[in-house]
């Protein structure tokens, strides 16, 4: 990476102007967009992170002081604007709370990253980038990087139905071919992303790599689809983690015969080597606690809701 003199001043400025002894580390959200009832996008300002981020990396977000550390794959970054984008699905207590509290202008208590080993873009000539549901967001930077490196990019994205679709145009822009699938056929072809992969494999016999990101069950199916033809298939794993720096070992995954830590050895791994069943079992580790936390939070929201009804639509 070459360093120009303007970069030098940027980096130095970021540190020389830091006020006080212990810098407040909150990060400000500058844009939010809701894709559906459960999926939303947050863009926050962090010029250093935007400069350092590479496709395939993730961040850890601590939404509030009592919050947990949740890993989220970077969905986009803009080095000029100095922003990083995350796409979040509100499924548990923490993400539902974020859906309710994170708006433009509000701070995130802590964001650390980028973390993980960046994706290997290499000199591939033809690649398939597969995103399932929320996975469309994290695979986007890879599709863009492949395109910018001169590869022929086939995009395959899938959603349950038309209402859940997001970033279709943004994604299509970096694809030479584009296949969109939906479970109910309300948009694109009716079928799963694996059907999209099969179409691409039928048409092209010279695919170098398939990159698939989405729920574990989807990535497993994608890996099985490409296994017979022995096409290199990379998946991005998102197991439960605490620190994201290799220190706790909570994110250990079975890759072939060995154990790897997704946070520092990954999150990208060879899909044909990943033990997805093991990953899916380990993701259930805190199911009971998560349910309890969500119930307790929902009850407190209802109580608070009675006292003060929510004001206006969220933006």
């Amino acid at each position: 990476m070459g360093s120009t003199s303007s970069e030098r001043t940027d980096l130095q400025k970021a540190f020389n102007t830091s006020p006080g002894l212990e810098d407040e580390s909150a990060v400000e959200i500058i844009r939010r967009e809701d894709f559906s009832d459960v999926t939303f996008m947050l863009e926050f300002h962090h010029p250093m992170m935007a400069k350092a981020a590479k496709p395939g990396q993730f961040v850890i977000v601590i939404p509030q002081e009592h919050g947990e550390r949740i890993p989220l794959t970077i969905a986009d970054f803009d080095r000029k604007k100095g922003t990083v984008t995350l796409v979040i699905q509100a499924v548990g207590k923490t993400t539902k709370e974020m859906q309710q509290t994170c708006h433009r202008g509000t701070p995130l208590f802590g964001v650390v990253g980028p973390m993980g080993t960046p994706s290997h873009i290499g000199n591939n000539k033809k690649v398939v980038c597969v995103g399932g549901g929320l996975g469309v967001a994290p695979v986007f930077p890879q599709a863009r990087a492949f395109k910018e490196s001169g590869a022929y990019v086939i995009g395959v994205i899938g959603f349950r139905n038309k209402e859940l679709v997001f970033w279709e145009e943004k994604f299509r822009k970096y694809c030479d071919e584009f296949i969109i699938c939906s479970d109910d056929g309300s948009v694109g072809i009716k079928g799963l992303v694996t059907d999209g992969i099969k179409l691409a494999l039928k048409k092209h016999t010279d695919i170098d790599e398939v990159v698939a990101i989405g729920p574990p069950i989807m990535m497993k199916a994608c890996a099985e689809t490409t296994r017979p033809a022995n096409i290199k298939t990379t998946v991005s794993l998102n197991p439960i983690m605490v620190d994201g720096t290799g220190m706790c070992g909570g994110c250990r995954v079975k890759i072939g015969e060995g154990i790897k830590f997704a946070c520092v050895d990954g999150p990208d791994f060879d899909g044909h080597q990943v033990d997805f069943d093991d990953l899916m079992n380990r993701l259930k580790r805190f199911n009971e606690d998560e349910k309890k936390a969500l119930e307790r939070w929902s009850v407190s929201c209802r109580i608070r809701g009675k006292e003060a009804p929510p004001t206006g639509p969220r933006l």
Partner: peptide
């Protein structure tokens, strides 16, 4: 070793000391 309920002391201690898992659900880390 990948069964649920197997963890490193680092993970246990980090969850408890840094993340206050002992005060779950007042703190979010289980």
């Amino acid at each position: 070793e990948s069964l649920n309920g197997v963890l490193s002391a680092n993970e246990l201690l980090t969850r408890c000391n840094l993340m206050h898992a002992g005060e779950f659900p007042d703190y979010d880390t289980p």
